[in-house]
Amino acid sequence: MPRLRPSLFWQARREISPLAAQLLPACRDLESAANELRWIREHVQDTPSSVPPGLRVWNLVEKRGKGVPLQYVLGTQPFGNLEIQCRPGVLIPRPETEAYTLHLATLLSQSQHPPPHSLSILDLCTGTGCIPLLLLHALHASLPPTTALNIHGIDISPAAISLARANHHQHNPLPAPASPPLSPSHQRTLTFHQTSIFSPTLLSSLLPTLFPRSSSGLDLDLLVSNPPYISASDFARATARAVRNHEPRLALRYAARWGWCRPEDVFYARLLEIAAVLKPKRVLMEVGGMEQALRVVRMVGRFSSLLGGDGDGDGDGDGS
């Protein structure tokens, strides 16, 4: 990280505010310091509290200036048209994830004519629950009410699951249980489960209870996942300091070896193993850059030849 010139701090004090100068070590340039200061002030204005607003702004700026991600400081991150709550210990939703989730929602709602009787979606390593929540919102608005939605999110971290449930509680587009219930075939549900995707009981006991059986596997339309994918060397060198110091390692990298593949690709091997059993109609996995995408595509080929399934992989690169 290049050193910031002292004159930049003076410029921030003079042209924006002393608080902006305090934000500079984290923001690195004047424009984003001014933006973040404005957002912090707006946040303080919009949320009532007994603490005086000036003091709150000062406290938040101090925290942000020390390098804590803005999303943890303010407690939220916009994701599509949702404000997803963020807490330390759970990965912050990224804009790339937002972009492909919105794209996915339009694909799911427009590609099928006539609209399907039901859609079932499984999100592995769900974190804040942002992907299933945004899908639920978008599909709830765009699909006709005759289509049932059966969405499940799975994560290993108890903190993530409780946050995902809190987010679901806050952004629930579905009518309250008190109102007349829809007929059972037209229900729209989203549930979060805390379990490891490496658990041996996942495939044998949990998943069959969540999705109805079909002729080939389980009746699953979409398997989506944003697993930890950063390699040990990338984590040490290419990862931003705020991410390394403040976001959970559990959600970023996997250090142990598992069978024949690289540590950073272990999750894809397991995801493909799960996909081979469930035989979902579509699979979407986020990967970190072109090289990893190519490795995962090769892996998909190996799995489909081994298991005879139709590998319909859809990787999502993140231009690194």
Partner: peptide, 18 residues
């Protein structure tokens, strides 16, 4: 166009600018 710097994206960095 979405203005963002080049370099790594995704989980590796945490952008606030949108």
């Amino acid at each position: 166009s979405f203005l963002k710097g080049s370099g790594p994206g995704g989980q590796k960095i945490n952008k606030t600018n949108s």
